[in-house]
C-alpha cells in the first residue's frame, strides 16, 4: 500500500513526463536547489561563487613573516 507521499509522487510522474526537455532540466535544477537548501549547503548549480582565499600565496606569506621579524621595514623612509 502506497503512502500519501508516494501517491503524490506517482501522480506527479505523468505530469513530469509531459514536460519539454528544457522544463525537465528546470525541474532538476529546482530539486537540486531544494536539496542544497535543506542540507544547508551554500552551493547551487549554475551559480558562480568568488573564491577569495589566497590559497598558495607562499611568497606573500614569507614576506609577511620577514616583516614580523623586522617591523622597521614596513614603511618607506
Amino acid at each position: 500500500m502506497l503512502s500519501a507521499q508516494s501517491k503524490e509522487m506517482e501522480q506527479l510522474k505523468p505530469v513530469l513526463q509531459q514536460l519539454e526537455r528544457h522544463e525537465k532540466l528546470l525541474v532538476i535544477q529546482f530539486l537540486a536547489t531544494e536539496l542544497a537548501r535543506q542540507e544547508e549547503v551554500l552551493l547551487v548549480p549554475n551559480a558562480s561563487y568568488p573564491v577569495w582565499s589566497p590559497l598558495e600565496a607562499y611568497g606573500a606569506s614569507d614576506a609577511l613573516l620577514n616583516l614580523l621579524a623586522n617591523p622597521q621595514t614596513e614603511t618607506n623612509g
Binding site: P50, P54, E56, A60, E74
Partner: peptide, 11 residues
C-alpha cells in the same frame, strides 16, 4: 607609505 608589495593568488 607601505614599502612591501605582495603577490596574492586566486581572485
Amino acid at each position: 607609505n607601505q614599502a612591501i608589495s605582495l603577490k596574492l593568488s586566486g581572485n
